[in-house]
Design a binder for these strands. Structure first.
Lengths: 210, 210
DNA sequence: ATTATCTATAGATCTATAGATAATGC
DNA sequence: ATTATCTATAGATCTATAGATAATGC
């Protein structure tokens, strides 16, 4: 996985500390999609990054602090790998299609080994109220807002019907993306991505203004 | 939650043992949708069922054995609460609609506190190969086959178009159900169920033979 | 001089087992 | 007589901290 700096977090002042922190968070984000944010243990992470447990621990106040830093780091990766490339595809309907395609591509390219970070971690924390869930939910809300804005723009430009509201369009698009994630991670079969791609074409063609 | 006997599993011979086993598995199935099958600890379960840790442990050979028994128990509950009531709604298109509706109803009725057991546990184990994942995947495959069969029957009866294959129809239906699960568990807002219900009507109406 | 990292360890889990006691079924 | 359950405990985690050492930045 590439190294994405997360600007939101406090940076260590020394260069070796900065490098370590990014290495830890890259490993943590990847590991969390496989073993969960809770299953992610300090010991495992230390072994994987070649540090001692306490050396690693010195970067974070607590396990929850590590979990939240990992979420922020994953958000930066998702932004760089999905959201920004999606916007490069155009506006309105092209943007909506673009976001869906870059999302499916990031699954296929295995940006995270366990599929979509936020689908994986969202499912883990959906029933556990607290700061971690709040942060994950916040990001998912932002993602949905992206899809809704793209759908609304497509309607404003007269590219799709406004007979149904933009939230409903975004909902149905996201349902196909979530389904692709779940099935692709479970089976590792690209046919899962193809089924959702076909569904997206059918859905958006059905909304076309003719 | 109601008590559903799971016929597939070996039954204790003594009546108090039978009762305990069912009480343990009811609690385990509910707890697993909140804390995960891995997060589910023997100690927690013991406290929740009012038994000692070892008293509880005597019913199972290992933690994995408990996890698999819990999956089988949850499958029996899902069958009684979703699949059978779905079949009572009719055949063909009525069956397909019926299964989708009884699924959404079981979320709304909170049959499991953490939504759909198999969506929750599937997401937890999708990246962890082994017997537990196999068992979960097996059940999800059975569920998908139910939807595909219903869609194919609806086509055979001339109720929906056969221009697209039954697998694709089932895929798009299941995507909306999975999305409803994810959003409803995260937000506890019935609006999530409504969005998917609207999506299902739009989807199936769009497939109607006119 | 300050920051990052390490060794060593405390204290709280967790799974699992051994051996004893209480309750049921034939 | 057999089965279910309990107390007590082993041994392996895990998070977290104290105090010492090594590496960087001014």
């Amino acid at each position: 996985m590439n190294h994405h700096a997360d600007t939101s977090e406090p940076r260590p002042t020394r260069s070796d500390g900065r490098r370590s922190r990014i290495a830890i968070l890259d490993a943590a984000a990847a590991l969390a999609t496989v073993d969960g944010l809770e299953g992610l243990s300090i010991g495992d992470l230390a072994v994987r990054t070649g540090m001692s447990k306490s050396g690693l621990y010195a970067h974070f106040k607590s396990k929850q602090d590590l979990q939240i830093a990992t979420i922020d780091h994953a958000a930066a990766i998702f932004d760089a790998e999905v959201v920004r490339p999606g916007h490069a595809r155009g506006e309105g309907l092209a943007l909506l299609r673009g976001l869906a395609e870059t999302f499916l591509d990031h699954l296929e390219r295995r940006v995270f080994p366990g599929g979509c970070f936020f689908a994986a971690v969202g499912s883990e924390f959906d029933s556990r109220p607290g700061q971690v869930k709040e942060r994950v939910f916040e990001f998912i809300t932002t993602w949905m807002a992206e899809l809704v804005a793209a759908a609304a723009q497509a309607q404003a430009r007269g590219e799709i019907t406004d007979a149904i509201d933009a939230e409903q369009v975004a909902w149905e698009v996201d349902a196909l993306l979530l389904m692709a994630h779940a099935a692709f991670v479970m089976t590792a079969d690209p046919a899962a991505l193809e089924r959702s791609r076909i569904g997206l074409v059918r859905l958006l063609d059905g909304l076309a203004v003719r």
